[in-house]
Design a protein around this nucleic acid. Sequence first.
DNA 1: ATTGAATGCTTAAACCTTTAACCTGTTTTT
DNA 2: AAAAACAGGTTAAAGGTTTAAGCATTCAAT
Lengths: 344, 344
Amino acid sequence: MKIKDIAKLAGVSAATVSYALNDTGRVSQEVKQRILDIAASNNYTPNLIAKSLRANRTFTIGVLVEDIKVLATSRIINGIQKYAESHGYQILLSDLGLWEKIDCRYDEAVLYKDKIQSALGLFESLQADGIIYIGMHDRNVTGLLETDKPVVYTYCYTEKKNDFMVTYSNDIAYDVTKYLVDAGHKKIGLISGPINSTPSHKRLLGYQTALMESGIELNLKYISVGNWEYEFGYSACMEFMSMSVKERPTAIFAMNDLMAIGAIEAAGKLGIRVPEDLSVVGFDDTEIGRYYHPKLTTVALPLQEIGSIAAKIIDELSNGEPVQDQEQILPCSLIKRETVKERK
Amino acid sequence: MKIKDIAKLAGVSAATVSYALNDTGRVSQEVKQRILDIAASNNYTPNLIAKSLRANRTFTIGVLVEDIKVLATSRIINGIQKYAESHGYQILLSDLGLWEKIDCRYDEAVLYKDKIQSALGLFESLQADGIIYIGMHDRNVTGLLETDKPVVYTYCYTEKKNDFMVTYSNDIAYDVTKYLVDAGHKKIGLISGPINSTPSHKRLLGYQTALMESGIELNLKYISVGNWEYEFGYSACMEFMSMSVKERPTAIFAMNDLMAIGAIEAAGKLGIRVPEDLSVVGFDDTEIGRYYHPKLTTVALPLQEIGSIAAKIIDELSNGEPVQDQEQILPCSLIKRETVKERK
DNA sequence: ATTGAATGCTTAAACCTTTAACCTGTTTTT
DNA sequence: AAAAACAGGTTAAAGGTTTAAGCATTCAAT
């Protein structure tokens, strides 16, 4: 069923059908209704490919993800979809599957430039209106995507000045630390991600600032720098707890849920109770923490919003509208559950 | 950069450029090389929209998912991507976001027919070569997708006879039960999903068969039918454990990891040790089980393979090749970890 | 020397929509 | 009554690519 077919049935020209269907141009009520009826009863679906060819717009957003299996990725995509759906866009997805290839979660995605370029090539060939990159790795992303189309980096950071970026704020690390201090803790262990990781670095800063403002001296033996793995959380906590009872942390802030759970496991092994003897805060608000026992106090990221805003930027850019902020950094929130004892 | 531009630079007609780039038709080596060089140095990207319009093929697979945030979904998409990538396809994604709307996880997706139809309409408009439906809900899917394009249902079951289906086999329930019996258990509690759920039903059958073959009488008080939630696993186990020590199950097979964890929590509350006093097996191999303590013995589904095979079917169908099986049911595997004690 | 085939290229139509420009009556304005 | 405006259409071109058909030219075979 094409426009031509409708035209023939309605006894008008193809142009008139197009005008009627798009509610543009001048078509009499009578003829318009006839055309609409015919289209509906033959369930005509417009050929967007032809439309796109003509309009040089596809109403399609290319989404390039480092790994679809990471939950945060899905949540961001969910946000993109929400916007896309209500604004007539369709999502083109390409999954780089990085996680299964680089064992080292904080490795550089630069290695995958070929793969990225080929995915990008497809997006360009399919005339995507813009590209959203969902970057889960730690380093700043820069010089990865070579394209003339508008690009929005999400989750990760970029240094490129002509691209857009929407991510979460690590300032929450400040609030978490404050929260622990207010709960009466003075010795707060920090289980960090790798040192060369941008978010780790920013969170460390928040931790330091909060301590300083609270008049607590920064003590390097309370900072454990590692990877993002469960096992590291476990061993880091073991090390903390090997200190004398006087010295050892009464609270631990882990930079992700996995390490937080690892830490709690270690404490359990040593007979140290959480939260009675040791408070623990995680980061990411993953399912693991929600169903763990005790339920993990953690930080939730505004992932869905990140996705929606990224999609909105592409939309505005494609419509030639001005976009307010090149960078948007959304606040996180602390989810108080069962692993922090708020003693006074 | 269009074919016409290359043609002008190379001093030939557009047709010749097309022939050269696609390595079809008759073009002299010399001219072909010249064209290829020009295309490369100006990094020409073919306009797939125009190509699609002409060819009436887009090399695009429409993927319609019930909820992208469910981990199983991501894994299947990962499988689709794997195939797509190596065969020149691109993924069009549409997320129905059902999970956040129907609280009841086993509700019928029929309610969302409008949303499904509109997503489908977009796929049709964009001339997707075929459609893969990733269905996470329990009921058989039927009559949901009205389209002329080839449809492959994954994960879920369908009754429609002219569509394709690729999913996992629930026969593993038989093996799990056998495994528990072989480990010395005679009283095996079953924590099931809802009664009207297709997979629940099939797994129950496997459980029954295994018991029968082992000469163990089926006892209804060892079967708890509920929803898929953590809380139900908890209360179901509580009920099992309220029986006398003589009567109560020495092993529990939960139909998902979440309920399995709930059951272990309940046992812990009662001072019953897992696996020493009680063995537990889950289903799904989710992250939660992997990092839980003790590490959960569970069933892994061939999700990535499901995705790849589904994509392959679309590919073959689009190429006019015959597809061997209308239905493909792939085997699951038992992941033995720490929650089953293999006593003799 | 004439035919036949092979080579290397060009022309033009087709895929389906949109849209500027044009045409023909009818109504309004001066 | 003539000119202008308008309503309700139509025609044709354009968007980038593919591909059947056609046209010379060369070369081998009769």
